[in-house]
Simulated assay, not measured.
Amino acid sequence: MPIRSSRGRAGAYRAIWQWPLRSPARLAVTVLVLGGLVFGLVSLGNASGTAGGGLVDGGTTGGNRWDGGSSGVAATPTPTLLPPVPELTPESLPVAQAPRAALETARVWASAWVNHPEGGTAQQWVAGLRPYTTDEFLGVLAGVDPANVPASRVTGPATATRVAPKSVEATVPTDTLTLKVLVVDTEAGWKVSRYDRA
C-alpha cells in the first residue's frame, strides 16, 4: 500500500490552488490575472471575427458578408424585395348604397342633439344621445354644454355624402345649421362617432 504524503502530484495541485487563499493580496492578484486573461481572450475572439467576416477585398469594409461555406469567397448581399403595401384608404361605395339603418341613426342622433330643453342638465342631454353614440365619443360629448347647441329642431332627412363598407358620412339639416355626422358600424349596430358643421 503506497504511503500518502504532502509531496507528489496531488500535493503540487493542492499547493497551486491554495496559494491565492493564503493572503488577500495573493487573492486580488489572482483575480486580476484571471480577469485579464478572460478579457484578452474575448477581445481576441471579437477581433478575429471582425477581421474574418467583415474585411473583404484588401481590408475594405462594406455591405459584403463572408460566405460561411467552403468556397471562402465574399458574397454580396441579395436585396430582399417586399410585396407592395396596399393603399390604406377605405373602399368607397356609391352614395346610393348607404344603409338605411345608418341614415336613420344619423337622423335620430341629430334629433337628440337638438333636444335640450331649458332647465335640462348636461347629463340628461348626454343620456338622450347615449343609445346612438359610440362609447368613445360619449366621453367627448360629456364636456359639451347643451346650452351652446344653437339648433332646436331637425328640418329634413339625413342624406349620405360618403359611403364605405363600415361607415357613412351624412348631413342632417336643422333650423340653424347643417350637421355633418359620421356613423360607423359597431357590434351594437350603427353609432355616431363624430359630428361637425357642414
Results as ranks from 00 to 15, higher is better:
Val42Gly: 04
Tyr13Lys: 03
Glu169Pro: 00
Val56Pro: 03
Gly52Asp: 14
Ala170Cys: 05
Ala188Phe: 06
Val140Met: 07
Pro165Asn: 01
Glu87Tyr: 09
Gly128Arg: 12
Arg153Trp: 04
Ser167Thr: 12
Pro84Gln: 07
Arg9Glu: 04
Asn46Cys: 10
Thr159Glu: 15
Leu37Met: 10
Val144Met: 10
Gly45Ser: 11
Gly189Asn: 01
Ala75Ile: 09
Gly68Thr: 03
Ser43Asn: 12
Thr105Gly: 04
Gly72Thr: 11
Asn46Ala: 13
Leu44Gln: 14
Leu177Gly: 00
Thr121Ile: 03
Thr155Ala: 10
Leu44Gly: 14
Pro173Cys: 02
Val42Asn: 05
Gly45Asp: 14
Thr30Val: 06
Trp19Lys: 13
Arg4Trp: 06
Lys180Gln: 15
Pro173Gln: 10
Leu129Lys: 05
Trp17Asn: 00
Val163His: 04
Ala12Thr: 10
Tyr132Asp: 11
Lys191Ser: 08
Ala101Lys: 08
Arg153Ala: 14
Ala98Asn: 09
Arg4Ser: 08
Ala188Leu: 09
Arg22Asp: 09
Ser167Phe: 06
Leu34Ser: 12
Val31His: 03
Ala74Val: 12
Val85Lys: 13
Trp17Leu: 11
Val163Phe: 02
Trp190Asp: 11
Ala142Ser: 15
Ala106Glu: 03
Val140Ser: 11
Arg153Asn: 13
Arg65Gly: 01
Ala198Ile: 04
Thr121Lys: 04
Ala147Leu: 11
Val181Ser: 10
Gly72Lys: 06
Pro94Gly: 04
Ala164Pro: 00
Trp125Lys: 01
Gly139Gln: 09
Pro131Cys: 02
Thr78Gln: 14
Gly128Asp: 14
His116Leu: 02
Gln123Cys: 00
Asp185Phe: 01
Leu129Met: 09
Ala110Lys: 01
Leu81His: 05
Thr76Trp: 04
Arg7Ser: 13
Ala47Thr: 15
Gly36Pro: 00
Trp113His: 15
Pro131Arg: 06
Ala112Ser: 12
